[in-house]
Amino acid sequence: MEHTSLLERILRGIALTLVVVFFMFPIVWILMMSFQTNETILRIPPQLVFKPTLANYTALITGKLTTAAGTLDIAFMRNLWNSVFLSVTSVAVALLLGVPAAYAFARHKFRGSEDIAFTLLSFRFAPALLVLLPLTLYFQKLGLANTYIGLIWVYQLICLPLILWIVRGYFEDIPADIEYAYRIAGHSWFATFRKIALPLAGPGIAAAGLLAFIFAWNNFIFALVLASADKQPVTVGALAFITSSGIQYGQISAAIVLSITPTLALALYAQRYLVEGLSLGAVKG
């Protein structure tokens, strides 16, 4: 790194701090709110010093929400479990279906392959509400409304195109000759897919899976319309905090902290895969 003067370094430090504060402020503020009661949160002017309380977290975990108007039952933990279950299963199904499909689209050009791939992508163009109305009617007829299977199915609209298109790009980046070299050395195409294509596209698959997971986790509208209380994920469940006796900011904040923790942890853990994924070009040599 080139030599920089003291002044330059100080200015740079200030600039970086400003940026970090700007981006981290909402998260820090929410974290702080989650340890306060509604009264301290709504104080004017807001204060940085407060007596932390775990009441919000206790309320969420025990499922008893005490408000001025009485005690309410909330199913936050249930919602959190639903989110985990729906997102993980949806991504798993999408990977199982999407990765082989991506390989097929990348390696075997057949009649209409581009059209099929594009149709799958176009699922993401349509506004969710446009799809939802007919889908709700169908699902009620088919008995899929308010079932996990139905929800996971609908979540494929989010996960499958994403995985398919990202992973396809990674497969296309692997020189076909590497696979040919493996096949001519005495292996079937399936072994080649498993031993050569999958590991080489691994970082890409991980990155796509992670993105799909985050999208699935953050989904609101599908679950709002298609699921009732016991199947709802956190995004929808958070609505329960808008109660007759006011909005429970403390609990909302605690709920947010709890619900972003899995995705945040996953993103931090998978960071290196994302970086590796981006430098896949080095394979070409």
């Binding site: 020189p175 000759d177 590497i178 040919y180 070299a181 493996y182 096949r183 001519i184 050395a185 005495g186 292996h187 079937s188 195409w189 050569i196 590991p199 080489l200 080095a282 394979v283 040599g285």
Partner: peptide
């Protein structure tokens, strides 16, 4: 036949070594 069953060896123009 698929390449596996032909019993031929090949050196590729683009080398195609296994990166790992």
């Amino acid at each position: 036949l698929p390449p596996v069953k032909r019993n031929v060896a090949m050196a590729f123009e683009g080398y195609s070594l296994y990166p790992p």
